[in-house]
Amino acid sequence: MTDKKIIVAVDGYSSCGKSSMARTLAKNIGYIYVDTGAMYRGVTLFALREELITPSGEILEAELESRLSSLSLTFDRQEGYEEPVLHLNGSCVEQDIRTMQVASHVSPIAALPFVREFLTRQQQALGQAKGIVMDGRDIGTAVFPEAEMKVFVTADPRVRAERRLAELRSKGDNSISLEEVLKNLQERDYIDTHRPVAPLRQAEDAVVLDNSHVSIAEQDLMLRFAFEAILAHLRGGQRG
């Protein structure tokens, strides 16, 4: 009998390694991976391009809400990438959504209730058939509170900032300092954990993984063990 497919929800702070972890797990267990953070970055990029965020940082909320219906976010294959990446209205934006400009505006955009409602509906549709690993800020608490496997990832803020800076450097951004990256992460943490709608928090039934000093191989081993344990439990319940 084929194992029952489940939903794996991976939540946590930005730049704590949860996306790499979720992506690796999905690949190893043959599940579909969905990066919901990329979806919020996609909306942010759209708002920036359409000048719906003023130079002072104010979001033109009414206009953004009225124009969401014209926004298409899909994960499609793209030359140069091993896995499907985010496309905004048919164009690949994987590199564009990873800039500090987008990072500095994404948390306020993600705090807007109509944006969360818009993307939550899409995320729930993607997970209807299960067999999915989805990472974000509220997957195990708001998008899929019934997910069979929930992981909450955390890491030391300075370690996260160092990882984020290394990522930016690898993409040719040499204009920003470690302290600036750390400040941005701390500001995003505050907004993400204090927003009134679906704030970032650990689900009561989530497994907590501190990723500060854990290797990729160790992360994968722990998650695979948890995944197999959950499937064994489900199989046992089916037999009973």
Rank of each mutant, 00 (worst) to 15 (best):
I29Y: 03
Y31A: 00
I32M: 13
I32V: 15
A38G: 04
M39R: 03
M39G: 08
M39N: 08
R41S: 13
G42V: 02
L45P: 01
F46K: 01
A47I: 04
A47F: 07
L48W: 10
L48F: 05
L48T: 05
R49F: 00
E50V: 04
E50S: 12
E51T: 07
E51G: 09
S56C: 11
G57H: 12
L60A: 09
E61H: 03
E61Y: 00
L64K: 01
L64Y: 00
L64G: 04
E65A: 14
S66T: 06
S66A: 15
L68R: 04
S69Y: 08
S70H: 14
L71I: 13
L71R: 02
T74D: 15
E82I: 05
E82T: 15
E83M: 07
P84F: 12
P84C: 07
L86V: 15
L86E: 03
S91D: 12
S91M: 00
S91L: 10
S91G: 06
C92K: 00
V93F: 07
I97V: 15
M100R: 08
M100F: 03
Q101T: 15
V102G: 00
A103Q: 01
S104V: 02
H105C: 14
H105Y: 04
V106C: 07
P108S: 11
I109F: 07
A110L: 05
F114G: 05
V115T: 08
V115L: 14
T120A: 15
R121T: 14
R121V: 13
R121W: 02
A125V: 10
K130D: 00
K130E: 09
G136Y: 03
R137Y: 01
I139Q: 08
